[in-house]
């Protein structure tokens, strides 16, 4: 994953925070997904506006106490999962 790639939440997804965790509904497929607290924080950032991977990692780093390399690996893994599920779009740098 390139840190300069731009990530955006899909227009086909509606989400709602339920007791601190996000529940996503993909309107295109009718499937729903649950995110844990970290995933929910990332989704909230994505929901505001498209963001680069680097900026996304910056925001996560500011919020969670973890080494940068761990954050980049974890964010990258989640973004891959969200992309596979069709919940985000990616624009290569």
């Amino acid at each position: 994953m390139n840190l300069h790639d731009t990530i955006a939440a899909s227009d086909d997804v509606v989400s709602r925070e339920v007791n601190g965790e996000a529940v996503l509904l993909d309107l295109a497929s009718g499937q729903y997904f649950g995110l844990n607290a970290v995933g929910s924080a990332i989704w909230q950032i994505l929901g505001d506006a498209p963001v680069t991977m680097a900026a996304l990692c910056d925001e996560v780093e500011a919020e969670f106490d973890a080494p940068r390399d761990v954050i980049e690996a974890d964010v990258s893994e989640l973004i891959e999962e969200l992309a596979m599920a069709g919940l985000i779009t990616r624009k290569a740098a």
């Binding site: 339920v18 965790e21 529940v23």
Partner: peptide, 11 residues
């Protein structure tokens, strides 16, 4: 159920 699970099932 957790609220998340309840929501997904109620849909």
């Amino acid at each position: 159920l957790t609220s998340q699970n309840a929501l997904s099932q109620m849909l």
